[in-house]
Each structure stands twice: as structure tokens, then as C-alpha cells.
């Protein structure tokens, strides 16, 4: 026990010093295990990184844009952490993570740390551990953390619960804007980007979006920027970075940054409690096989699921009263 703690403390020290191998190791731990002990140690050192989420349909140029944004930030002597999430295969649980391909120009800059994550079954566009991985990068001294979602086109609203600024990227390909509205993407956007500005149809999409935003309820004092970029040519990226910075200063000036981050902490607490309880239930209290034994009787209508669930729950609550709080 002692030895292990010493290990952890040593690790934390290296992490705070920005030692890449250690950062990578701790991220793996956080990704695959219950690592609350480590996270507890890390938490006090976090809170200074600004989180930016980049979401949008696949192929919109998210990775390219992240790379271009990062380059700009590096030019301003900022440290940048990048988390790029790709889907896990629902069949094998494996994943092909290819976002790095877009970021090779950055890879050797010592002020960048790029980590690819597989979603590992999570559905909201991020992986379960994304928040914790961001926390690790935060503590490792990153000024900015850029998070790229999976981009499978479904509802990817998790990103807004992790990031201070959410950038939604669309491209002038058919039906994108409608798709985005359906998916509620516009609701979570703080900044809208139309990428592939070199393509036809770009202006039309911009107009459509402006119209859609006018219809949307305005947050006081924040004028949603709708920007055009060509990520591959580095065009419009400076404007995007400026927009991110002004969103950040808007948030902090109005006190919203603190409010939002507190909200996020509250949410985090809820999540963690749920996670623990769910884990505990599954692992310790409700072994499936015990319930399976009752299935026959339920099937024959000799027992009913409402009654059984009620009983189990009551007992858990009673136990919880004694044990967990």
C-alpha cells in the first residue's frame, strides 16, 4: 500500500512536470480502470485549461481544423492537448483510430500532446473516460484542450458538458444543415463553422445557418459567430481562434464561466455517484444469475418484476444508508 502510494505520488509529480510518457501512462490508467485515487490526486492541479469541443459530421474536416487551430495556439506559445475520439466496433470492441493522420505536422512539437480514444461503447460522441482524460491533460499544464468528437452524425451532445466552448463544424454537402438541426447540433453550438470554404454551396449554407440562428433564442450578450474556413488552406482559422478567445472572455466577464463550470461539477458528481452505484450494484449486489433464477417464476406469472425490483431496491437503499454514505 505504501509503495503504491509512493508510486502514485511520483507519477503525479512527473505528470505535473509535463513528462509525456507519464501523461500517456496515466491516461491509459484512467481510461481502463477505476482510477479515482489517481484522479483525486490530480484534481487539485486542474482547472486552468480552457476546453474547446469540435463536433460535426464525419469528414467535415474536424481533425484538420483541430490541427490548424492547434498550430495557431502553439504560435501564441500555448500548450495544447488534443483528444480525438473515434468509434469502437460494436462487434469486436476494437477500433481504428485515424485522426492522427491529419495532425502529423504537429506531432513533434513539444507543446502538444495528442491522444486518440476509442468510444468503447459510449454513445454520446465521446468516450466515457474523456472527461477524466481531459482532467489529466489539464493537470499536465495544457492551456487549451481541444476535443474532437466521433462525428457519426447522431446526437453528440456530450461535448457541451465537457467543454467551455463548443464549435460545430458543417460542410456544404447536401442536407448537412437540416441534419444538424435535427440532431440538435445548433443548440449546443457556441460557434458555427462552415468548413471546406473552397467548395461550392458554401455561401448558401452560411445563409441558411444565419437564418436558423436568428430564429434561435439568443444567449444574452453573445453573438453567435458563423464562420467560414478552409482548414486545408489554413483560411479563416485565425478568425476562428479569435472567436474562441472572445467566447472565453465573454464567459469569464459575465461570470458564466464559473457558473457553467460549477454546473459541470455538479453534473460530474451525479455521474460519479451513479457510476459507483451502478458498478456496485452490478458487481456486488445484484448478480445477474440470482435474478435469472427467478425468471422462470416470472414467466409463469408466479412472481412479478415490480414486486421483486421493489424489494431489491428497498434493501439496497437500506444497505446504502448503513454502508455508503
Amino acid at each position: 500500500m505504501k509503495g503504491r502510494q509512493r508510486e502514485t505520488v511520483k507519477g503525479i509529480r512527473a505528470l505535473l512536470a509535463g513528462e509525456k510518457r507519464t501523461i500517456a501512462r496515466i491516461i491509459s490508467a484512467v481510461e481502463s480502470e477505476d482510477s479515482e485515487e489517481i484522479l483525486e490526486h490530480i484534481f487539485p492541479h486542474s482547472g486552468s485549461a480552457y476546453h474547446v469541443g469540435i463536433t460535426g459530421p464525419p469528414g467535415a474536416g474536424k481533425s484538420t481544423l483541430v490541427s490548424a487551430i492547434a498550430k495557431r495556439l502553439l504560435g501564441k506559445r500555448k500548450k495544447v492537448g488534443i483528444i480525438a475520439v473515434d468509434p469502437s466496433s460494436p462487434f469486436s470492441g476494437g477500433a481504428l483510430l485515424g485522426d492522427r493522420v491529419r495532425m502529423t505536422d504537429l506531432a513533434l512539437d513539444e507543446n502538444v500532446f495528442i491522444r486518440s480514444m476509442a468510444s468503447r461503447g459510449s454513445l454520446g460522441g465521446l468516450a466515457q473516460a474523456t472527461k477524466d482524460v481531459a482532467l489529466v491533460l489539464d493537470a499536465a499544464g495544457m492551456d487549451y484542450i481541444l476535443i474532437e468528437t466521433i462525428g457519426v452524425g447522431q446526437v453528440e451532445l456530450d461535448i457541451a458538458q465537457v467543454c467551455d466552448t463548443t464549435v460545430v463544424v458543417l460542410v456544404p454537402e447536401s442536407g448537412d444543415s437540416i441534419q444538424a438541426m435535427k440532431a440538435g447540433l445548433l443548440e449546443i453550438a457556441d460557434i458555427m463553422v462552415v468548413n471546406k470554404g473552397d467548395r461550392e454551396g458554401c455561401e448558401r449554407l452560411l445563409t441558411e445557418l444565419k437564418f436558423a440562428f436568428e430564429m434561435r433564442e439568443q444567449k444574452v450578450g453573445w453573438d453567435y459567430p458563423i464562420l467560414k474556413t478552409t482548414a486545408t488552406e489554413d483560411e479563416g482559422v485565425e478568425e476562428l481562434v479569435v472567436a474562441i478567445e472572445s467566447h472565453a472572455s465573454y464567459l469569464s466577464k459575465t461570470g458564466r464561466l464559473e457558473d457553467e463550470r460549477k454546473k459541470k461539477l455538479l453534473l460530474r458528481i451525479h455521474e460519479l455517484i451513479e457510476k459507483r452505484i451502478r458498478f456496485h450494484l452490478k458487481e456486488n449486489i445484484m448478480p445477474e444469475r440470482d435474478i435469472i433464477k427467478l425468471l422462470d417464476k416470472m414467466y409463469e406469472r408466479k412472481l412479478n418484476p415490480y414486486r421483486i425490483a421493489g424489494q431489491i431496491a428497498r434493501r439496497i437503499i437500506r444497505l446504502a444508508d448503513r454502508r455508503f454514505v
Binding site: G59, G98, V101, R102
Partner: peptide, 10 residues
């Protein structure tokens, strides 16, 4: 002309 970057792959 700039240089080419490979698009999505798999």
C-alpha cells in the same frame, strides 16, 4: 501548390 494530405482511410 501546397502538399497533399491523405483523407480518411479505412
Amino acid at each position: 501548390f501546397g502538399v497533399y494530405h491523405e483523407p480518411i482511410i479505412f
